[in-house]
């Protein structure tokens, strides 16, 4: 029974990683940039949700939507201001900018409101416990998982069935050719950032409700781990990010369950390095050879 309980714990944690990883994987797929600031968009989303619930007294769903909307705009702003001028710069320059943006968001928020944590109110969602054969599953865990899956299905639909999704895939495949075919590359990239950031915002609100405590540096570690999840599933592949996130959550839970909870964060990075060395295309990726 303990093992099943641990799997449940892991899946709840993994769903949050998965939601953040979806944004990572989309952005990387289209502009080949590790958007370090993505974890901080997640944090901003969490704070927006917090203020929507406490100050504006809104319900969970409206807080979630407000947070997603705000993050979408925020993500586009980041892209337009910081990343767009660097489209043709080197990868290193882009990566350093991403680190800079991440530090700026974190410290900007600390400057505005201080570094102290904030606690989500306890009564946002009814809290029920389901006891199934001695395994207790909270209604929140189920909610997290279902929200993640619903969002992933919507995302999959958008990417594969809509015009903008087609444009995204085209830009991701070859942005020069896409441009020649009349696709507005700039708008497509902005749309990608908007969608990815909205997902991060949703993850932020869900995180707040599930883990209560939020603070300006909360996005750093989940952000990095979500990147690990994205790499694990094969970067640029949407179902891959989902599976990678869940898998990483479960791995972490099992490590803790074995009594090595202090090694948990280390394991995520060991997984990352092993994946990068032995399976750089990820679980779902196609192997690509670099051509000269």
């Amino acid at each position: 029974m303990e093992l099943i309980q641990q799997l449940v714990n892991g899946i709840s944690l993994g769903s949050i990683y998965a939601l953040i990883a979806l944004g990572y994987t989309m952005v990387y797929g289209i502009v080949k940039l590790i958007n370090f600031a993505h974890g901080d968009v997640f944090m901003v989303g969490s704070f927006v949700g917090f203020y929507a619930i406490t100050v504006m007294d809104l319900s969970f769903i409206s807080a979630l939507l407000i947070s997603m909307f705000t993050c979408a705009i925020f993500g586009v702003l980041i892209e337009r201001i910081a990343y767009k001028p660097l489209r043709n710069a080197t990868r290193i320059a882009a990566l350093i900018t991403a680190i800079g943006v991440s530090l700026l968001i974190e410290n900007g928020l600390i400057y505005i409101r201080g570094a102290q944590p904030e606690a989500y109110p306890n009564n946002v969602l009814p809290m029920d416990k389901l006891d199934i054969f001695g395994v207790s599953i909270s209604s929140q865990s189920i909610l997290i998982l279902s929200v993640s899956i619903i969002l992933m299905i919507i995302l999959q639909f958008v990417v594969h069935k809509t015009k903008i999704g087609k444009a995204m895939r085209a830009v991701s495949f070859d942005s020069e050719a896409a441009k020649l075919m009349g696709i507005n590359v700039n708008n497509t990239i902005s749309a990608t950032f908007a969608i990815g950031s909205a997902l991060a915002g949703a993850a932020g609100v869900i995180f707040g409700i599930y883990y209560i405590k939020i603070e300006p540096l909360m996005g750093v570690l989940p952000g990095l781990k979500a990147f690990v999840a994205a790499v694990l599933g094969g970067i640029g592949i949407i179902p891959g990010a989902m599976v990678g996130g869940l898998l990483l959550g479960v791995i972490e839970a099992l490590v803790s369950a074995a009594g090595y909870s202090l090694w948990r964060d280390g394991v995520a990075f060991i997984v990352l390095i092993l994946i990068l060395i032995f399976l750089p295309q990820g679980l779902f990726g196609k192997n690509k050879r670099e051509k000269v």
């Binding site: 714990n9 972490e252 202090l262």
Partner: peptide, 20 residues
């Protein structure tokens, strides 16, 4: 006897161990 480190946010796995 279980341990965590400052800034951890997810304790459920270890708590499950304590419970059992």
């Amino acid at each position: 006897e279980e341990a965590y480190v400052t800034k951890d946010t997810d304790f459920r796995s270890t708590l499950t161990r304590i419970k059992s």
